[in-house]
Design a protein around this nucleic acid. Structure first.
Lengths: 111, 111
DNA sequence: ACACTCAGTAAGTTAACGCTTACGGTTAGT
DNA sequence: ACTAACCGTAAGCGTTAACTTACTGAGTGT
């Protein structure tokens, strides 16, 4: 999943609460919803979005769906963040590549 | 600034474009707006939001305002992301602290 | 078979927010 | 002083998206 989607998905406060609630370990929907300021269907909707973004995974145990964190889902966002700190290095690389006429990898400046 | 704000601020696509455009170095507003699919006032509004979030800084050069990246503004988001990868380690620490009755640092589970 | 719990989906409402146009203020050049 | 360029802000509009209620379905126990 692209970092863009991860950002938009995690931007919503209650969806972030849902996400962070899974830090404590896997949990069924009802347990997640308890204590949150929104209804249970709302939590279901958030979980669907989180799942589609690869930030959460789901398994069934009888009648309940157990959701758990997918930390790998955060990887792309993390990489994007990291890329900001070696912009100077990257600029140097590009210059080096230009002069040496030899490509390694490119990065989008605008998405 | 809190990571929550950084997420919501960077969630918008065109605002992210504005932000990423500054990777190439400081730039006046008009130059940023050129090539973007929105009007110049829209860019101004985005820049204000970015500035309030500490992701961008501004200086004046005559009649133009030069905006540049503030990479430190991303720090809190980065820390938050990192915190997901040592949850297990953190759990261990907490247990250790509990038994040894000796605090180091705490982290919020729910915002 | 019936009832109860858990959870996803549909439909509709409301509020937030990103955009545009219009305007005002500041700087620089002639 | 007049004009032009650069930019921020106000007001208003339209769309998106998060929420609620209502419904349906699947699993489990009696």
């Amino acid at each position: 999943m692209a970092y863009q989607e991860i950002l938009t998905v995690l931007a919503d406060p209650t969806r972030r609460q849902v996400f962070e609630r899974l830090r404590g370990g896997p949990s069924p929907v009802k347990a997640i919803a308890t204590g949150l300021p929104v209804s249970r269907p709302a939590v279901s909707q958030h979980l669907k979005v989180l799942k589609d973004a690869g930030l959460v995974e789901e398994r069934s145990e009888g009648v309940r769906r157990i959701y758990s964190l997918r930390r790998e889902g955060l990887a792309e966002l993390r990489d994007w963040l990291d890329s900001f700190w070696d912009d100077a290095l990257l600029a140097f690389k590009i210059e080096a590549e230009r002069t040496h006429r030899h490509n390694t990898r490119a990065r989008d400046v605008n998405e």
